[in-house]
Design a protein around this nucleic acid. Structure first.
Lengths: 219, 219
DNA sequence: TAATGTGAAAACCTTCACAGCT
DNA sequence: AGCTGTGAAGGTTTTCACATTA
């Protein structure tokens, strides 16, 4: 008990969780632009989502608005960040320091959002000991130890497809509960481990379906 | 007419389209590993999806299986690739050749899947004329002309967040119907334009919710 | 026997519509 | 007057379960 906030103790749909970061992003933008209050209608327009959906989504976590007025932007950002666990920093480790892994280590978008890359690993002994960003590459055989030492919360997998499932298995054995996977595979993990896949090719491949099915209203 | 294949003329849910590329990926792996026939149960296990869902999904497009036996892997891969429009090559243009844009141009995962980067654009005159991979950077003001000349099917947006919506507006004006967006924004486009967002931070931010809500069964 | 393809049932998610608060 | 919060309605997606076929 004491875990869930506000509304009721209804189980919260995963789709709702997936939308919250989007809300946070747009709200943050509004706040930084000086907007103090926003209605679900206004927010919905900016997100391409219905106002009712926004109100329903927020209602899972509490009553953040004022009737007749709308939502205080700063307040709502804060509440949603708290709900998502974004009111603290999270430590990540990048596994695989090839082209992609190095790009991830140097990606400037994580740090400002509270995600720090504090460790890097590679199976190739030639890479071990090198420095990228401000992390030193360690051997994959150190995974277990390092994950505890560095208090890693999230693993970022950037190894070739052929090795990815093995790496993910090791991570799971080490007790990792969250994995951001860049390898183009469908990872197998136990239920209690969360995986998000970053895979531009999948995005392209769904769009071609729609491109193909187009212009068919032209004779 | 003659567009929709197989089963019936039921409108096909977008979630189904989104799953197809995953099926293609796992099936391709199986095929390359020498598997000739696969059942929906086997496939489901590898994808973390129920067998019924796979059968229902496939039934939107045709009857690809054999009762009592399963699906011929090579045949099914071919059919699904055809359904998704992956039986041809698609031309893409990368907009923005900063760190991220250059990484995308050099990403080796697109070409083997039939996606070619045939043009690159940047607003910065210092970048115009430079070469990355085997494309020459052009001025963003040439977008319109170049999209027609190079027969660009898909735009890949890799500009800073602040410029992304403007770039997307230009692309839409040029008639682009598919955009792969790497900028951390919620893009606004007309219904007929498809957008897929690649945003690792959103993935991380949904996982922290689950991490936070964990270990609560340990009193 | 084994596994597909599919109507029907169940689960899930979104939208409606309005009471209630500011 | 305006907009939230929310039960109930409506719509969509998933799962079930079985007739059917190899």
């Amino acid at each position: 008990m004491s875990t869930a906030a506000g509304g009721g103790s209804v189980p919260i749909p995963e789709v709702v969780i997936v939308r919250l970061p989007l809300y946070v992003r747009v709200l943050t933008q509004l706040r930084d632009g000086g907007t103090e209050v926003v209605s679900s209608r206004e927010l919905g327009t900016r997100l391409g989502v219905t106002p009712a959906q926004i109100r329903k989504d927020l209602s899972y976590f509490g009553r953040f608005g004022k009737q007749g007025r709308g939502y205080n932007v700063s307040f709502l950002v804060g509440e949603l960040r708290r709900v998502l666990g974004l009111d603290r920093e999270w430590n990540t480790a990048v596994i695989g320091v090839g082209r992609l892994g190095r790009a991830i280590i140097n990606y400037p978008g994580f740090e400002p959002e509270g995600f720090r890359v504090v460790a890097a690993f590679d199976a190739d002994p030639d890479q071990v000991g090198r420095h990228f960003g401000n992390v030193r590459v360690r051997s994959t055989s150190d995974l277990d130890r390092a994950i505890v030492d560095e208090a890693i919360d999230i693993a970022i997998v950037a190894v070739p497809a052929a090795e990815a499932q093995d790496v993910i298995d090791s991570l799971v054995k080490c007790g990792i509960k969250a994995i951001l996977n860049y390898a183009p595979i469908a990872p197998q993990v136990p239920d209690e481990v969360k995986v998000r896949n970053i895979d531009p090719v999948l995005g392209l491949q769904t769009m071609t379906y729609h491109l193909k099915t187009m212009g068919s209203d032209r004779t």
